[in-house]
């Protein structure tokens, strides 16, 4: 048992750079000008702030839903295709994920802008220009584009590992294609769906870059609000309170997700 001191430098490091910063945030959240106060949280419950939170949750929810609707069929197809080709296809889906997400978002900016390729195509067809950038849909679009791979891979890896014989047995026993899917494949893939949902929803609800770039700052999301408290307004106390609310939100939703599905995220989810 002597080797346990090997972890000591790391423990000290994490104490200094993870625990202490959170303690400072907690301190700021519960004080105003150095004395204890709950006003920061009272401010959080004002209609404006709750509105921003609900808007972020709604957008993240829509993003997760769309990612699931688009990602599940892709994952299913990738998992069920013959070995050789599917390995190559999977790599094709991984490559964009490895590209810097700011560049990916910027790429869509250049497609969606007023004089962008899509608008010029629409003009050429005769539809005329449509305002695409700096709209709610542009933000949603950017979220889906950035986080879609995070939905595909957890589902894919669960489907890939699941026993194909179960599906064959079901159809041998007389289940039709739809029944095989709803009674066998879908339940088997549920852990992947759960971890996909958490891997899309969490970053979508906390992002501040995507709404800033594609929404042009017109649509405040919860992440924006926190960022601006620290970097623009300079209200650290309120910003800290909001950060704590966000952390609580994430932990609660992770807890709910882990309860619904057998925990599929964690150590292996980190790979994607």
């Amino acid at each position: 048992m002597k080797r346990s001191w090997f972890a000591f430098p790391y423990g000290l490091w994490m104490l200094l750079f993870t625990i202490v910063p959170i303690v400072i945030i907690v301190y700021y959240a519960f004080t105003i000008d150095g004395s204890f106060s709950l006003d920061n949280f009272r401010l959080f419950f004002s209609p404006d702030i709750i509105g921003i939170l609900l808007f972020s949750l709604w957008l993240a929810f829509l993003c997760t839903l769309i990612c699931l609707a688009l990602g599940y069929p892709v994952a299913l197809f990738l998992a069920k295709t013959a070995m050789k080709r599917s390995a190559m296809l999977v790599v094709l889906f991984i490559i964009p994920m490895w590209m810097n997400f700011l560049l990916r978002t910027y790429a869509w900016m250049s497609l969606l802008e007023d004089t962008g390729l899509i608008n010029r195509l629409l003009e050429w067809v005769g539809v005329g220009r449509v305002k695409l950038m700096y709209t709610e849909n542009a933000v949603l679009f950017g979220l889906v584009y950035n986080f879609l791979p995070f939905m595909i891979f957890p589902i894919y890896s669960v489907l890939k590992r699941s026993d194909i014989l179960l599906e064959e047995a079901a159809s041998d026993l007389g289940a039709n294609t739809l029944n095989v899917f709803t009674r066998v494949t879908l339940p088997l893939s549920l852990p992947g769906v759960v971890s996909g949902i958490s891997m899309v929803f969490m970053p979508a609800v906390t992002t501040f870059v995507i709404p800033r770039l594609l929404g042009g700052g017109m649509f405040m999301m919860f992440g924006d609000l926190i960022e601006s408290q620290f970097l623009t307004t300079g209200d650290w106390n309120f910003g800290s309170a909001l950060s704590l609310v966000m952390m609580a939100l994430i932990l609660v939703s992770l807890g709910i997700l882990n309860k619904t599905g057998t925990s599929a995220n964690g150590e292996e989810g980190a790979l994607w």
């Binding site: 994490m14 750079f17 959170i22 400072i24």
Partner: peptide, 24 residues
């Protein structure tokens, strides 16, 4: 205890990690 502390930065949203370090 160590595993939980290690999980903490992975569960914390990036923005909160960044801000808490900035404040530190």
């Amino acid at each position: 205890l160590y595993v939980n502390v290690t999980n903490l930065p992975m569960l914390t949203p990036d923005i909160v990690t960044g801000i808490s370090l900035m404040v530190l």
